[in-house]
């Protein structure tokens, strides 16, 4: 094979690898969204601008503070797994924190924060952005802030959990998908 053909063959291989990275992301997310168990999380959105990825609503999932019996074994900035359960209102709660992914219970990767008197702060770092159209994200944020003053905790997101993978599915305001809610509250 000539040098030029080698070069072209190598280029095709590299091009395939470059396409494989986003393709794998799509495949794993689609699988989670189709086969994952649904959890509802209460949330408070705020809206920053990410120049790189367009506009999004920045979510702050709850609970972000949980009781732990062994707070001394954790330190800040550690990766942990929040084992999930559902409360009587149908919202997600954290049963306990684990260092490794439990085999037979749904869990989501989180990052630990400060620990104080048996309580630990956690960040749902993989589930903190809900992307929206450029003009709608600020509108959603504005509407939310006005709305949340009158009522409390009327926002939630649905998250699909499948093994170690968690995928954000939809943002709801007053039990309506955010786009639908915005259409009605223009």
């Amino acid at each position: 094979m000539s040098r030029r053909n080698w070069l072209l063959a190598a280029f095709v291989l590299i091009a395939a690898a470059q396409l494989a990275a986003p393709a794998w992301m799509i495949f794993s997310r689609e699988r989670t969204l189709h086969a994952g168990k649904v959890f509802k999380f209460r949330t408070r959105p705020i809206d920053p601008v990410d120049a790189f990825r367009g506009h999004y609503v920045w979510l702050n999932l709850e609970p972000n503070e949980i009781k732990v019996a062994d707070s001394y074994v954790w330190h800040g900035g550690q990766k942990a797994f929040a084992v999930l359960d559902i409360d009587t209102n149908g919202f997600a709660i954290v049963k306990r924190l684990e260092h490794a992914m439990p085999a037979d219970e749904p869990a989501v990767a989180v990052e630990t924060g400060w620990a104080y008197k048996g309580k630990m702060h956690i960040q749902w770092s993989g589930l903190d952005r809900y992307y929206m159209a450029e003009e709608k994200a600020p509108a959603a944020e504005r509407a939310y802030r006005e709305h949340s003053r009158a009522t409390n905790h009327t926002c939630h997101v649905t998250v699909r959990v499948n093994g170690p993978q968690a995928a954000l599915e939809e943002l709801f305001i007053e039990n309506q998908p955010v786009r639908e809610w915005l259409r009605q509250h223009k």
């Binding site: 986003p22 992301m25 799509i26 997310r29 969204l33 790189f52 990825r53 367009g54 999004y56 770092s125 993989g126 589930l127 903190d128 952005r129 809900y130 992307y131 995928a167 954000l168």
Partner: peptide
Amino acid sequence: SLVAQTYNIS
């Protein structure tokens, strides 16, 4: 980045 945006991957 665009796939990350489509699937809300932070």
